[in-house]
Write a protein that binds this DNA or RNA. Structure first.
Lengths: 212, 212
DNA sequence: GTCTATATAGGGATAGAC
DNA sequence: GTCTATCCCTATATAGAC
């Protein structure tokens, strides 16, 4: 999935930066480390990017572009809405598993981790809306009953991101001594099950309101 | 809910630090800012805490202690398991809403944001296990069918944390021009509904496996 | 396009007066 | 217990040779 073959220095810097920003955060990332990993001197980075902030933004753009492409591809494909939803969950998990650091960057950013003068785009929100619109389409809306389509999408996405990035740290024993493939499989099955139960569950408003 | 009344300097430093570490991350936090917010000089912080790392750990301990207390209180109360689960979800949301920065710190930490030599405790995992054990109790296990109790708890927790901390940044328009109370209400209803549908949904293994 | 060397700033931490 | 002043290190960024 990840692009292979010989990459130019710029590309290798971008990849090293993605790893660093994801694992260390924006402030925690040292350009020195990025240069080290690429195998060049720190000063060389400034030949490709004018500043740390510029590098950060370039990493972000790269990721956002790919994500948008993939989601649109699914949305524009042939098929029933319900199948598209299932496919979207799958590609979402694919993205998170293939680019864990990228996911971490996005999570960090949503916690406020970004360069001082950084302006977040509404690209991710527009994508969320597209998916939410699909969920709200006639057929699905019936089975969803009173669940807010947008909250449904946002919540599942958050759950997926949390499982793969935070999960291993919060609950190492559960993820434990297993290979990445079977961990992914377990999580994927679980999230799928949650989604399906949400999708064709009847309203439990009676129970829910009894709780309040 | 938040302790009121006159607080000593130490306490005010801890609170300011919690805010800073949550919003800026460990590396992004400047001791200068914390001192500023408290209204003392930077050097004064070192009278109470020997280092930035020490301060960070103190903030963490404070939060972990309170959380453990609250969860244990619910677990040891009288009542049906199902009602305890509902109560736990409620207190979890309470915690996140009351101490958003504390939640952010925990999320950040699970992404790898911590002092260089920091050793995470397994306190949160032990708590998760206690709750998962409750979910796995005879009565509940039946209705849960093939859902992994631990994944169930972990996933819901992640969803709640994500909704309140990342949600407003990722999807500002959805949280939009509403007061905090109604936003909380919407999210709480949604997560409750998801939980209920998971709890009494039948297995959809047939459907799920068709997806794979 | 990559290097060495250096400028500049900012932040954590300490010393010591009050 | 709080302050002022300062040390020391590290990190971003620049200059200029090759």
């Amino acid at each position: 999935m990840r692009p292979q073959g010989p990459r130019n220095t710029r590309q290798r810097i971008l990849e090293a930066a993605e790893t660093a920003f994801g694992n260390e955060g924006y402030s925690g990332t040292r350009l020195h480390h990025i240069a080290e990993r690429v195998g060049v001197q720190k000063a060389s980075l400034f030949h490709y990017f004018t500043s740390k902030e510029h590098l950060y933004c370039a990493v972000l753009d790269e990721g956002a572009g790919q994500a948008e492409e993939i989601v649109k591809h699914v949305l524009e494909s042939e098929g029933e809405p319900i199948d598209k939803i299932r496919a979207l969950l799958r590609v979402c998990i694919d993205m998170v598993v293939t680019y864990p650091e990228r996911t971490k960057i996005q999570l960090r950013q949503s916690l406020g981790d970004a360069p001082p003068g950084f302006q977040p785009t509404d690209a991710s929100e527009r994508m969320l809306c597209l998916v939410a619109d699909l969920v709200a389409s006639d057929e699905l809306a019936k089975s969803l009953s009173p669940i807010d389509p947008f909250a449904f999408v946002l919540g599942l996405m958050g759950m997926v991101a949390f499982f793969f990035t935070s999960g291993p740290v919060v609950a190492p024993s559960w993820f434990g001594q297993q290979d990445a493939a079977s961990v992914r499989d377990r999580i994927e099955r679980h999230v799928n099950e949650v989604m399906e139960r949400c999708l064709d569950g009847q309203s439990h408003a009676a129970k829910s309101s009894a709780v309040l």
